[in-house]
């Protein structure tokens, strides 16, 4: 009982720590310095999210040598090899939240954004977006992907 109550409490406070898409603070250089959840990212989970076509689908546009076991890497964006030597954690988090500050009018989607769209849909259904449109990646997903990107130190 006591244990269950403690876990329940921990989960609640965890929820409360999640920064909502509208509340993210971005520096003028497009960095997000504060973790979106306060929970350290899990690089293994981040890797899975990057590959999944229904989630990050990052490989649609990016080549990543560490993910060579996955077929079909796109050429629309730059290779992410060595990306952790070019950007620090805050900058990578900022690029995922919304790359437009760093790359204006970028083709790269903003993964942690829920408003300001033209004719947003409900996923890939062609129906209009629901009122409570969720960001393309959840807060912890972003942290996990950032953690994986931080492992990409080699060219």
């Amino acid at each position: 009982m006591l244990l269950a109550a403690t876990i329940g409490l921990a989960a609640t406070s965890l929820q409360a720590d999640v920064i909502a898409p509208g509340d993210v603070v971005m520096t003028e250089y497009g960095e997000v310095t504060e973790s979106l959840t306060g929970v350290p990212g899990d690089p293994a989970r981040g890797q899975a999210i990057m590959v999944d076509r229904g989630q990050g689908n990052c490989l649609a546009c990016h080549q990543v040598t560490a993910l060579d076991h996955e077929p079909w890497h796109g050429e629309v964006g730059p290779s992410l090899d060595g990306v952790a030597t070019r950007w620090d954690e805050a900058a990578l988090r900022g690029l995922l939240v919304n790359a437009d500050t760093v790359f204006p009018d970028s083709i790269m989607p903003a993964f942690y954004k829920v408003s300001g769209f033209v004719r947003p849909g409900d996923g890939f259904t062609t129906r209009p977006a629901p009122a409570d449109l969720q960001p393309m990646l959840a807060a912890q997903d972003i942290e996990d992907v950032v953690a994986f990107l931080m492992t990409l130190t080699d060219y």
């Binding site: 649609a60 050429e75 629309v76 989607p109």
Partner: peptide
């Protein structure tokens, strides 16, 4: 859409490139 992509993003600025 939620990905904020125009026809031009894909077919004017990226023709020739692999998308997946």
């Amino acid at each position: 859409g939620q990905m904020e992509l125009s026809c031009a993003h894909c077919h004017e600025r990226n023709y020739g490139n692999l998308i997946r």
